[in-house]
Design a protein around this nucleic acid. Sequence first.
DNA 1: GTCTATAGCGAGATAGAC
DNA 2: GTCTATCTCGCTATAGAC
Lengths: 223, 223
Amino acid sequence: MGKAKATRGDRAGAATTAEKIRAAAEELFCLRGFEAVSVADVAERAGVNKALVFYHFESKAHLFDLVLARYYDAHTAALAGAFADEGALAERLHRVVDAYLDFMADNRRYAALVQQQLTEPGTHARIRRHLEPLLRFLEQALAGATPPKGPLAGRQFFVTFSGMVTHYFTYAPLLGALWGGDPMSRAALDERRAHVHWLVDAILARLADERPAKARPARARTR
Amino acid sequence: MGKAKATRGDRAGAATTAEKIRAAAEELFCLRGFEAVSVADVAERAGVNKALVFYHFESKAHLFDLVLARYYDAHTAALAGAFADEGALAERLHRVVDAYLDFMADNRRYAALVQQQLTEPGTHARIRRHLEPLLRFLEQALAGATPPKGPLAGRQFFVTFSGMVTHYFTYAPLLGALWGGDPMSRAALDERRAHVHWLVDAILARLADERPAKARPARARTR
DNA sequence: GTCTATAGCGAGATAGAC
DNA sequence: GTCTATCTCGCTATAGAC
């Protein structure tokens, strides 16, 4: 699982063989998924011999695991920062949405990769470990605005928000043809961003309307 | 592509060989996707010889195409009925959401199948033909409530609604572990249904609030 | 660490008897 | 229409020289 030596960053010129392989694998896996990429493809892309892939990484599966772990970590890190406890709830959620959209736009095949993982039981444990902190983040952020159980609980909004964002990217290749225009263009991404922001506001407004009526008696816990 | 004779329904006892194969393929493809299912698996499940699969269907890909087409058709049919022009907009949308959720609950791996297709360019044309009428349905239904362009256009809500629904099912295997309790249980599905209904209402309420205000000066193009 | 050569397997698909 | 036997190919992974 990676020689201990691979501590160097990924400067362009001085890439070690292992790093070239990792980079090539990342590119290809994110482009075509796991099954559709062969070790020979990775080696060719990296400009190294096929056998070296097995020397530096134990197997194709290990290599894929490594790529996936990097993505999961990057994803969590990107969102964790955005959840920072500053500003009103709406503002925080907008930040999170922005971070999510930006991450997806920068790693366009990531959504597809994760979706693909979902179809393979056996990888569920890892994805769960990846998603759990994100779910907790959102539940905590929403704690003051949503009830702890039922159809308006934070976990429902977790599915809703992540669906709204990721769906756009998994469907992007189709949307281009259906809509006309590139859904990955700056303008299109900004439009999607505005849409999701609008939805966040609509949801918060409706929650605020309902809360006093619903959980009325005694003091409402403002946060 | 299927002998012309295969007009019989799928009564249990009198299943023809081709039908047994088709049924087995449908089950397995929806359970594990395309790559993870071998022709030998299908034959075994159907209780027939492997070579017969190639006799009755030209190839594994053809067989898969057939299964997929059936699903797409069933999906479109299920939603088309729900879009019927009766009742207020909110009521119609609730009907569509219900039909969508029911279809997904009855065909639990369908969402994963479609997602998987999205990762394989070359199948895009077909999915597009499948999605196009659904998009047009929704755009038409929303025509009076949303602007024709921009972040609140119908097409944005198309991605949003389908994401909210399908995401629940693609993530279901994980949600069980994350939440505790089976996300496919009657109670859990009803909770999700209530959540999406609530969202539909929140969105319509907000749209109604904004429309007069937004395009205010001179005559607002009420459309 | 890097290469060539090849083992070994499982897959889709076909040949041809019945 | 159904079967057995087999072909062919691409893939992961390894052996072993350098």
